[in-house]
Nucleic acid binder design. Structure first.
Length: 113
DNA sequence: ACTTTGACTATAA
DNA sequence: GTTATAGCCAAAG
């Protein structure tokens, strides 16, 4: 067997895919859920590749620790991310998720139950 | 092999 | 409140 070079990326995709609608999470929390081998930057980098590997990945539910839509420019349009979030009941104001802590979904609390 | 960059985060000033 | 710097790890040039 010879393949498998995106182990950490695969884990990132899986966790992002597990984010329930109407909820959001941060890059750091995903990285923490995977382990020390991955950092918040790796999650963001993986997301950049995700749209080519897993277009259906709900990357719009992943924001930075401030609840800010930092990755909006990587979507089809800058407004696309906000529209997707609002469609799920998440209020976005000034590129930031309102009641972020209330809508925050923590992988460690759901996966490492 | 080396340098730069990146959808981040934390701390310091 | 913002801005700067360091830490983090991997891919791309």
């Amino acid at each position: 067997m010879a393949s498998k070079k995106t182990n950490y990326i695969d884990d990132i995709y899986e966790i992002v895919a597990l984010i329930p609608p109407g909820r959001v999470t941060s890059y750091g929390l995903i990285a923490d859920a995977i382990g020390t081998r991955t950092t918040a930057r790796m999650v963001g980098w993986a997301m950049n590749k995700a749209h080519a590997a897993v277009p259906s990945l709900p990357a719009h539910r992943v924001v930075n620790r401030n609840g800010l839509l930092t990755g909006r420019h990587h979507f089809a349009t800058s407004q696309r991310m906000q529209e997707l979030l609002e469609a799920e009941g998440i209020e976005v104001e000034n590129n930031q998720v309102k009641d972020f802590q209330d809508k925050l979904w923590v992988p460690l609390n759901e996966i490492g139950i």
